[in-house]
């Protein structure tokens, strides 16, 4: 326990911000930046992907489906190596590990998020679309004003879950020397050499506090949304018991 306290008190700067200000931003702050920016950029891409997946046109639907399956079928670490190798070739200049990680996360998260959004769209009762079209609204209008707002609201807990996954995935930046939290912890471990268990326990604890808090948020969101849904449904009239069946002789 003393180990843990001493390690934290001596190295908290490194864990929090990496080499900053003597180098680029790192540590926990970089982890959070990567996660937030990654998910923020992934979001519009995932909405487009989801819409493409449910498109009635095969020339839109099939490429989208292929992309999603490819991303879901390949391990993230393999993906990171792909981007790490090919991005410099595409852009013609060297790309930092951080940017590589960011791009990888955006593509990876977009694929997974698009599945959640697709589920949210398909889970909306058909009646919503039918009512909207019956009122004369176009496909795009229906999508943007009726379907997506509801689907996305319902998918909020899933999206928080996705954010938690992203935070965990940033740890893989370690393999391409991105200066995030896990990398910082490994630096400390390499320096101390004889205290791997406390060091990695501290690392685990930081992730745990972060992700657990978020998952509790997701749970509360889910309960709230379910409550609202149930409340909406209570408005439907409940059929009376078959009192109308009085069969008189």
């Amino acid at each position: 326990m003393n180990d843990i306290i001493s390690i934290v008190s001596e190295n908290w700067m490194l864990l929090l911000v990496g080499q900053y200000p003597h180098g680029p931003m790192g540590g926990l702050v970089l982890t959070l930046i990567l996660s937030v920016v990654g998910l923020a950029l992934a979001f519009p891409v995932s909405v487009l992907l989801a819409l493409a997946r449910i498109s009635p046109f095969p020339w839109i639907r099939l490429p989208a489906t292929t992309i999603v399956y490819m991303v879901r079928g390949v391990p993230l670490i393999m993906f990171i190596f792909w981007v790490y190798f090919f991005l410099p070739l595409l852009t013609g200049r060297t790309v930092s590990g951080t940017v590589t990680m960011l791009i990888t996360l955006v593509i990876y998260q977009a694929a997974y998020l698009s599945e959640s959004i697709r589920a949210g769209i398909e889970g909306l009762p058909r009646g919503q679309v039918e009512a909207s079209r019956a009122l004369g609204m176009s496909y795009l209008g229906t999508m943007s004003r009726i379907v997506l707002p509801q689907a996305l609201y319902n998918m909020l807990p899933a999206m928080v879950s996705q954010f938690i996954s992203t935070i965990k995935e940033t740890s893989l930046g370690y393999v391409i020397s991105v200066n995030e939290l896990t990398f910082s912890a490994n630096q400390i471990n390499a320096a101390l050499l004889t205290k791997p268990f406390p060091v990695f326990m501290i690392l685990a604890a930081i992730y745990f506090v972060l992700c657990f808090t978020l998952s509790q948020l997701a749970r509360r969101l889910e309960a709230r949304i379910a409550g609202k849904r149930a409340g909406r449904q209570k408005a439907h009239p409940v059929p009376m018991p078959t009192v109308a069946h009085v069969v008189t002789k």
Binding site: K168, E169, S171, Y174, S215
Partner: peptide, 8 residues
């Protein structure tokens, strides 16, 4: 569920 696989 809250700790990355790599860290585990």
């Amino acid at each position: 569920r809250n700790i990355p696989m790599l860290v585990q």
